[in-house]
Design a binder for these strands. Structure first.
Lengths: 225, 225
DNA sequence: ACCTCAAATTTGTAGGATGATTGGTTCATT
DNA sequence: AATGAACCAATCATCCTACAAATTTGAGGT
């Protein structure tokens, strides 16, 4: 005899589940506005209260955002990122940097193993943008290009869970990257080491890719002390 | 002109924030029942709807659980665990294993750098438990000791964010770890490599610690294919 | 063409009413 | 006294109506 586990789902939970499916299936695309409350009430056949509790849950989880007077919009397809982000904000820069090291090292390793032609093109585009920004000494543009480059490297790992975690670290990292970039004044070192990393990944030199990540994270750590 | 960023918090968000504080501060302890809706309505001075939307958000996030007819109880102090669990359930074992690799590799490296006397004692206790369980061929006890050992290694990294991520992952991984353990039948290999890892950490041999982690993750990966 | 202001749309908050589930109490029957 | 049925109280679940606040839209006047 199995003692019936939490057998019955509440109406709110059912609605939450349905909305999750709509988002995950792409029927409600990220950035798009979802139907107004009144329509959803009819669609799901529940009261406004029930619907609002469901929507509010997903807002808290970071999947939706509501704007009074405008509507409700799809923000993300994964709740993990927001929870991760909240946790990061309670941590120190060093702690965060070390977790970043963990993710980037694994990402670089997997990227070197799995990168395909499309990945190579993406990385090339972004490292070229870095080079141009560095030449123009446009610090803001460089930071933006740098982040895009890192994302494309992570994307080349083809591990969605890893990508998810890294993407949501980025927001919290933006500030510290800026801070670090200002401290470590040697922009050329930065650019060169990034080129080296991309090179290693393209050539599928796993060890060199890992070592390169180790190198620039170590550099960051130094500039923190 | 700076476009005012979403400045004002909604009432629901304020209530959510206050409840989060109550939980985090330990004023509402895990497992305990929280005051009924009517009391909270008076305490926070909001309507039923507002309060319920706030509570429901935290239920979805996994901080609270409500039981009709009984009350609402504190379940966890961190939303990360539930989010992780949900996300991992959608991921393949390989993806999860790779993220585990990322965390364990960093953890081993930091542990080798930072382990103190107390950490060494903890790790020694747990590896001894592993050895005994292996001798007795008690698979269940071995798995438990194994998990405790990994946690103590992670703990030696003294990076709370890393520890948190790993612990919450471990919860969801228990099943798949079991599965992996059954597939890789060579228990002695398992034990030896763990001894090697702890040894490296105690001797502060960073490279050997990292290499050892790489080795047994690679072994796991093989057994997956 | 431009400005003003009212209306429509949409989410936010309030408060009441009823149903469902659980736990305990009372009380009659055995 | 033990048992079990009926009742009652506490609590969350759902639904309803009403109004407030924010945003967009458009009509009307200058």
């Amino acid at each position: 005899m199995t003692i019936s586990k939490t057998n019955r789902l509440s109406l709110v939970e059912q609605v939450v589940s349905q909305i999750e499916s709509l988002i995950e299936s792409g029927e409600w695309k990220i950035g798009n506005q979802i139907p107004p409350e009144m329509d959803l009430i009819k669609q799901f056949d529940v009261s406004r209260n029930t619907l609002r509790e469901a929507v509010r849950s997903l807002v808290y989880a970071g999947l939706l955002v509501t704007k009074q007077g405008k509507g409700t919009f799809v923000k993300s397809s994964s709740a993990l990122g927001v929870a991760f982000q909240r946790r990061i904000q309670q941590s120190g820069i060093l702690e965060t940097l070390e977790v970043r090291h963990a993710l980037e090292r694994e990402g670089a390793q997997l990227a070197a193993l799995r990168r395909n032609q499309e990945d190579i093109e993406q990385m090339s585009i972004h490292i070229e943008a870095c080079r141009k920004a560095a030449e123009a000494k446009d610090r803001k543009a460089y930071e933006e290009a740098d982040i895009q480059l890192h994302k494309s490297i992570m994307g080349s790992s083809h591990n969605d869970l890893l990508i998810d975690l890294y993407e949501h670290m980025e927001d919290s990292l933006h500030a510290s990257i800026h801070q670090i970039a200002e401290m470590s004044s040697d922009g050329n070192f930065h650019l060169n080491i990034h080129c080296n990393l991309v090179d290693a990944i393209i050539e599928q030199d796993v060890n060199r890719a890992i070592e390169t990540v180790n190198e620039y994270i170590a550099q960051f750590k130094k500039s923190l002390v």
